[in-house]
Design a protein around this nucleic acid. Structure first.
Lengths: 191, 191
DNA sequence: CCCAAGTGAGACATCTTTGTCTCACATTGG
DNA sequence: CCAATGTGAGACAAAGATGTCTCACTTGGG
């Protein structure tokens, strides 16, 4: 270990802890710090050395979720090509983070403080704008508001992640099911 | 009060307590028994006289949610007429219970016991069957499985309830937004 | 009026979770 | 080999939630 206090393996460990915490908390949102530590294969003491407390852990998960969302938004290049294909790219890019998103989406405790993380506002803005763009180009219908389509996308991502983890939907079908339902709906169009 | 121990006002009180508990827990799923009692306008002691403990309260909410779901399923007469209209009737009938459903849907603690309430299985069966009927009559596409459509309906109901309570969607648009997205999707069909 | 039932307020012990601490052990680099 | 760092295990107190109890008060029927 360096004399200068470099967090040599700490960074990797921290990310690994966050990942396993996200997996566990997605399945059981009331898991204790001890359960989180065990799920990560470390002791509760070490967990506390990484995150000051449960609140700090949840905040770190929130930051991770926001970062992954924004990375997916960048990858998807939402402002290129038809809006429908942009949404498709977005769902495909965000799929690995869907479980974490589902946890954060239902963690309403995050939003009761007066100052909520601005990251969500930026993400909401980017999502609504792609739906708005689709409406302006005539690709999307205008009677469903961009705000509602954004909200519905969150809900479908959460439902999809949950359905896959419960075995009710095949993991390979995740993106297809969500995109087809969100864009095309259940009704047959080639009647 | 009768000498025979009739629960004259108890029944009404109990229902009122359940309603306010559902409203509060939908908004803050970690509310304490004291908060639940205050929200219902009663003391914690009286709350405990109605429900043996927190677990019993959540179970009662689950039973209430199941009962309201099944009532809505009966009201909607899912096996009559086109499947799309049946789904529309269902969402309209289930709208008042959407908040409660959203709470129960995210209360994954309900499903970690080995024996989960059979009521959900019955409801799932009735929901999937209406989607299956729509597929068999050619009204719905067949590449989205009935199980996924059922799951997505739950997710959209939860998203809708949340969006309304946050003011992002007008309460009057609840049914329309959900039904149109679920059945028709975001894409314009009259291209 | 009187009594029974229900209620609210509060005290109380208990349990769980949390946050902090110490100490022994393992690993790694010099 | 040795020193430094990180870790696991466990003890510990503090905080919060829960479940139970008592007691005084109110209300409604007889």
């Amino acid at each position: 270990m360096s004399h200068l206090g470099y967090p040599c393996l700490m960074a990797l460990d921290r990310d690994h802890v966050l990942r396993s915490a996200a997996t566990l908390l997605t399945r059981k949102s009331t898991a204790t710090m001890d359960e989180v530590a065990k799920a990560a294969g470390i002791s509760r003491a070490t967990l506390h050395r990484h995150f000051a407390g449960r609140d700090a852990l949840v905040r770190a998960l929130e930051a991770l979720g926001i970062a992954e969302c924004e990375a997916a938004l960048d990858t998807a290049r939402l402002d290129e090509g038809p809006a429908g294909e942009a949404v498709h790219r977005l769902v495909r890019a965000i799929e690995p983070a869907a479980g974490l998103l589902a946890f954060l989406y239902t963690e309403n405790q995050l939003f009761e403080g007066e100052e909520q993380n601005q990251g969500w506002a930026r993400i909401d803005e980017r999502l609504t704008s792609v739906f708005r763009r689709g409406q302006e180009t005539g690709e999307f219908r205008i009677d469903l508001t961009p705000a509602w389509l954004t909200e519905a996308l969150y809900g479908l991502l959460a439902s999809g992640a949950w359905a896959v983890s419960e075995g009710r939907v095949a993991a390979n079908d995740f993106t297809y099911m969500i995109v087809e339902l969100l864009l095309g709906g259940a009704r047959r169009t080639t009647a």
